[in-house]
Design a protein around this nucleic acid. Structure first.
Lengths: 344, 344
DNA sequence: TTGAAAGCGCTAACAC
DNA sequence: GTGTTAGCGCTTTCAA
């Protein structure tokens, strides 16, 4: 009933040779009308599912995929990506795929550009990039595209039609998630949106989160709350933050738009009053404060899965001709002290 | 540098034939000491990764996997499983795998037993079961085991060494997650644990959730809270629940241990005071109340992924010789009104 | 105990 | 245009 048909079967039924069937299937032309019809009649009647596996046995071309992301030694957030990429490599080890990882310094635009030049030299078939530097990335991606190199971005969205696909979260929506969480945590008072732009610039992305956060509170339209944005830079962070606290005695909750919630918790955990705290990312230091309830919720951006999916999409495109989704939005995981362990 | 070695390569280097290498690799015996040594020396020196794909080209045996779960028409919770199973089938369509789904009536123990008998008749290589009926499942699984049929359970844990693997959530821990959520939602007063055991018996599993929930509150040890358990049966649910509310004016939060939180929300949403509500599962009716904020949080048990993984583990075991993890615990996803869409 | 050879499903080169 | 054939990496005969 559910017989699996092979090219050989089709050839026999249609009364032609395997080669002809193959030519029809792949639209390689050089097939007479009569042969084409004979084959198509058979194909219409049966459910032919090519064995994608056997297809690739033959293939000798090695696909070259390059991944470029910030050096995890400089920003530990990216560490999981390496595992994700390695998982993908392992999973497709039987195919002719070469994946190479490049790291750039996220505090240094030139490092980003230089690494892309390095990548170009290897004439890759595709690149997967975390495009932290917006302007530069747009140019670089345009260049890849001109050279026929497929580019896919992850973690940070980039508007450009030179990009084939994006894997990551909807940051606006994740701001709304944080909004809902803080609404529950705080009944009234001031809620601060804290941008802790440590060393480097990813302003566009934290702004997206802020917009979502504010959109949520506009929508609930509750006069109990005041929302205020505050941008803090690294060197003076502690002092500036203390000043902020003193200047705002009604401060009741904080939304940290970067992964640095632990820096805030370090301070708020020592205050007399409880300040609700929602942040991002399962860094060790964040998790410690989550377990001690000084951070109430973390939003998990799942960099590991982002990188994994980015690579897998490319591999499956090359070896299985599978379409790459233009936009793959990952779930916005809410983490508290009790479910954290399941995500790491 | 990273050359991929094939059996042919190894044979040439070792100065033996492909057949001999194969015999060594698969420990089929019938290899002389000298040949064995020659091959092993080569294997020690290189990193041989067999092409698992090519391996299965030859294989003509069709592996027969049967899945048994409650009929989604009777309990809609299970609906997602079908998609998950179909995803797995699709993913491995090129291999010789036959997956058949069987449904039992979750309100009827006999239906469970009968379906297992049906399955037995097809002499499967493995079964994946949602063992809702504990006692009966233990017997059935023992029987499968005796017949050399691999059994894997999902969604509901069963203690039995006749079972090869379990895929699902840690229900105790998910109770703790709910505990933490209600602690945040409710500052003081009575928190009710509601078991709505509709038509059928899954008492063991909801008890596990209750234990975790209580464990959490014992651990925070806050005298502001009283925890009380309440079991309600379907026919009189509404009346009994109203009585419960009236008898407990300090009721501030409810933890529903089944997927029937919507039945509670239907009532609490019409009360004057806000009662915090945490439940399970992304049923349509639950989601509606989540969006209207009458349910505060849902815990997602991800039946789709459970079934998917259960099947995939088996398939990969058969075709890739991959080990099946004894216990695969899925993350305990916390869902609120804002991140729900990403999970469905 | 061993090597040679056929064949899994598909592709691509090559005659005709 | 079309059929034949070799070969991808591996397994499994089968003859030696």
């Amino acid at each position: 009933m559910n017989k699996k048909y092979t090219i050989k079967d089709i050839a026999e039924i249609a009364g032609v040779s395997k080669g002809t069937v193959d030519r029809v299937l792949h639209k390689r032309g050089k097939v007479s009308k009569t042969a084409l019809e004979k084959v198509n009649t058979v194909l219409d009647r049966i459910d032919y599912r090519p064995n994608l596996i056997a297809r690739n046995l033959k293939n000798t071309k090695i696909f070259n995929i390059c991944v470029l992301l910030p050096n995890p030694k400089i920003d530990i957030y990216w560490e999981g990506c390496i595992d994700g990429i390695n998982d993908a490599i392992e999973e497709f080890i039987s195919f002719n795929i070469a994946v190479t990882i490049y790291f750039f310094n996220p505090t240094n635009t030139n490092s980003f550009i230089e690494n892309n030049e390095e990548i170009l030299k290897t004439s890759p078939d595709a690149v997967l990039i975390a495009p932290l530097f917006y302007k530069e990335a747009v140019e670089i991606v345009k260049n890849y595209n001109a050279l026929g190199i497929i580019s896919v971005t992850f973690n940070n969205y980039l508007k450009s039609n030179a990009i084939k696909s994006f894997v990551g979260q909807d940051l606006f929506q994740s701001g709304k998630v944080a909004g809902r969480l803080l609404e529950i945590l705080v009944k009234k008072g001031l809620i601060a949106i804290l941008h802790i732009d440590e060393d480097y610039e990813n302003a566009i992305y934290v702004q997206e989160k802020e917009k979502g956060f504010r959109a949520y509170f506009n929508q609930v339209n509750n006069t109990n709350y005041t929302i205020k944005t505050c941008s803090l830079q690294h060197p003076n962070f502690k002092r500036s933050f203390y000043e902020f606290i003193e200047a705002h005695p009604n401060l009741a909750g904080i939304f940290v738009t970067t992964s640095k919630a632990f820096q805030v918790a370090e301070i708020t955990s020592k205050l007399d009053k409880k300040i609700a705290l929602v942040g991002y990312d399962l860094l060790k230091s964040n998790l410690n404060y989550l377990k001690s309830f000084d951070i109430d919720f973390l939003i998990h951006q799942n960099p590991k899965r982002q990188a994994y999916l980015g690579v897998v999409h490319l591999i499956e495109y090359f070896i299985f001709d599978k379409e790459i989704p233009t936009k793959k939005l990952l779930p916005i995981d809410i983490i508290n002290s009790e479910n954290a362990n399941n995500y790491i």
